[in-house]
Write a protein that binds this DNA or RNA. Structure first.
Lengths: 268, 268
DNA sequence: CGGGACGTTGACGGTCGTCAAAATTAGTGG
DNA sequence: CCACTAATTTTGACGACCGTCAACGTCCCG
């Protein structure tokens, strides 16, 4: 069986998952709600929304989406300090989420892809606490949070789903803390690659091949390593026959070896 | 002005914040809801609940609390793998939250004190993903989550508050990731102490003095350091005249120096 | 008083950061 | 389409920071 390989281009990315018309093409709700897309026909529906919704509920949730927004590579969807009003559901594209401390330290806290919800950091104090930067051209659904809350009061399934999404983010970050707090460079990179390839696989991409959308420096920031260490670790994995790496294209030759690195207690 | 110093004992801890009757004493709802405490009279109310509630809403929220639970030092409130049904509001005491990977790696993801809500990790898949271990005898309010969700659908203020609490946890973890990913040992310990003392200060304790409730090893796990490094860094801070440390008692002599460590770019 | 948990300190080594240079690629404008 | 510059990546040499191992000291509690 042939899987598409995640490329750097959202169009290709989408087409690998589905052949449904894209957001900008024929849209029955276009006139009533400019730029909007019906959730019922969205190929990312199973990632953003619970499965137990009936048609009417789906329609009501659809009506919450105020607009779609396109973000070009390198641009930000939101920035630290900006007023928080919306969550965003990524339809296509790839983001890095980063925080910056007053002294200029920078930390990538996550890489988010299609089907994932971002912006929840802003709920706490009505202002965003981090930046969301597009690493490739992206489209997002804009979800005004007060409408999400309003509808959640009517639809229990949606309410619980919102809670689940936030809980999932908390648990994800626990995992990153484990990585940053207790793993060595090779283990971190292995965990990173396995996580990335798993999420891509969920979206119909290959389990063994991927195109990184971020630089070595961004990977390093996420993993608490310097870019040189990331590069060296990639080279080491090539020598060991675990990976084939050509720039940002990575092919996983020996997934078991990667998994062993992550799961096996340091040998001593 | 004299602040109490956070001790290792919950009773003292409480009494420093308020002289209201404790949970186990006179309680008007005792017969209808055994072990329950009226939120309206709880000294942690301003930490757990939004301020804009009227008396009736307070009463309804109070009725959600199914029980109080006491946890002895060293015991767990919940464990990885257990079915999730409740959130917990800490009334007194001090917890560490830790995750354990399959290979036995352990990571403390947070230290939580009175007024804070824990257990949100379990919402994601109806099972807890981490352990909550009491570092001193503790009392918690048990909040059945399905009731919290039910009441949230009626009381918008409560709904938003729940979202805020989860968002705050996400943002807190972002900060820990920054710490683990980009700070050196001295900076990590400085950030840890300042954070701890700030939260204690919010609860009426001293800004400059505290009793640690955790071992050097637990601090190290949280900060991504080995216990020897934590110990050495404490000693270094003493030599530098920044701290006075006697076992778990810490007095901050030079808070500015600590803040500089955290905020100032590595000198180069 | 004695045992165990916890904390401190020293010596040493490994992992990863730092600095530097070169190679490769991407982006831009002619 | 090519030339040129900027950005990214790779690789090496070196050193700092922190982990490891070990010994000793301290506190607590029965």
């Amino acid at each position: 069986m042939q899987h598409k390989i995640a490329t750097g281009f959202s169009r290709t990315h989408l087409s690998a998952v589905s052949s449904l018309p894209s957001a900008s093409s024929a849209n029955p709700f276009k006139h009533a709600f400019p730029l909007k897309v019906a959730c019922a026909h969205c190929n990312m529906r199973n990632f953003c929304l619970p499965s137990e919704l009936n048609a009417e509920e789906l329609q009501r949730i659809s009506s919450v989406i105020s607009a779609q927004r396109s973000i070009k590579r390198g641009e930000t969807l939101y920035r630290n300090g900006e007023k928080f009003t919306n969550l965003y559901a990524i339809r296509t594209g790839f983001f890095k989420i980063r925080i910056t401390s007053e002294d200029g330290r920078e930390q990538v806290t996550g890489f988010q892809m299609a089907g994932e919800i971002i912006g929840m950091d802003g709920i706490m104090n009505d202002h965003h606490n981090c930046d969301a930067v597009a690493l490739e051209d992206a489209d997002v659904c804009v979800l005004p949070f007060h409408l999400v809350e309003k509808l959640s009061r009517d639809i229990g399934t949606l309410q619980h789903h919102v809670h689940k999404i936030m809980s999932r983010e908390i648990v994800r970050e626990h995992g990153v803390m484990l990585l940053l707090g207790s793993m060595r460079a090779e283990e971190r990179l292995a965990a990173f690659l396995l996580n990335l390839v798993e999420r891509l696989h969920d979206r119909g991409f290959s389990q063994s091949e991927l195109n990184l959308r971020m630089t070595r420096e961004e990977i390093g920031s996420y993993l608490g390593l310097k870019l040189e260490t990331v590069s060296r670790t990639f080279s080491k994995f090539m020598e060991d026959g675990i990976l084939e790496v050509h720039q940002r294209h990575v092919r996983i030759i020996n997934a078991d070896a990667l998994a062993l690195l992550v799961n096996h207690e340091k040998c001593h």
